[in-house]
Simulated scan of single mutants.
Amino acid sequence: MVREPLQQTELQAERFSGYLEKHYEHLHRPHRHSFYHMVLFTSGEGMHTIDFDRFEVKPFQVYCMIPGQVHSWHFTAPVDGYVVNFPDHFFRDFLYNPYYLERFPFFSGISAEGVFQLPASLQKKVPALFDELIAAALDAAAPPDMNRVLLLRILLLMSNAVAGYPAKAIPEQKKMILHNLRRLIDMHYKSIRLPKEYADLLYITPNHLNALCKDLLGQTAGELIRNRVLLEAKRLLINVNKTVAEIAYELDFQDNSYFNRFFKKYEGVTPDEFRKQFLK
Rank of each mutant, 00 (worst) to 15 (best):
V2R: 13
V2N: 09
V2D: 07
P5C: 02
P5T: 12
P5V: 10
L6M: 11
Q7G: 14
Q8T: 12
E10H: 12
E10I: 05
Q12L: 14
Q12T: 13
E14A: 11
E14P: 09
G18V: 06
G18L: 09
Y19T: 01
L20E: 03
E21N: 09
E21V: 01
E21F: 00
E21K: 10
K22S: 01
H23N: 13
Y24K: 15
H26E: 12
L27R: 05
L27M: 10
R29P: 00
P30G: 03
H37V: 00
M38T: 10
M38P: 02
V39W: 04
L40E: 06
F41E: 04
F41M: 13
S43Y: 08
S43I: 00
E45P: 02
G46L: 01
G46Y: 02
T49K: 03
F52P: 00
F52V: 01
F52A: 05
D53S: 14
R54L: 05
F55Q: 03
F55P: 01
E56W: 10
E56A: 15
P59I: 15
P59E: 15
F60I: 12
V62D: 01
Y63V: 04
Y63M: 04
Y63R: 08
Y63S: 03
C64P: 00
C64K: 07
C64H: 07
I66Y: 02
I66D: 01
P67W: 04
P67V: 10
P67D: 07
P67N: 08
V70K: 00
V70M: 07
H71M: 00
H71A: 03
S72Y: 04
H74L: 09
A77Q: 11
V79P: 14
G81A: 11
G81M: 11
Y82D: 07
V83T: 07
N85I: 01
P87I: 03
P87A: 06
D88R: 07
H89K: 11
F91A: 10
L95G: 06
L95A: 11
Y96E: 14
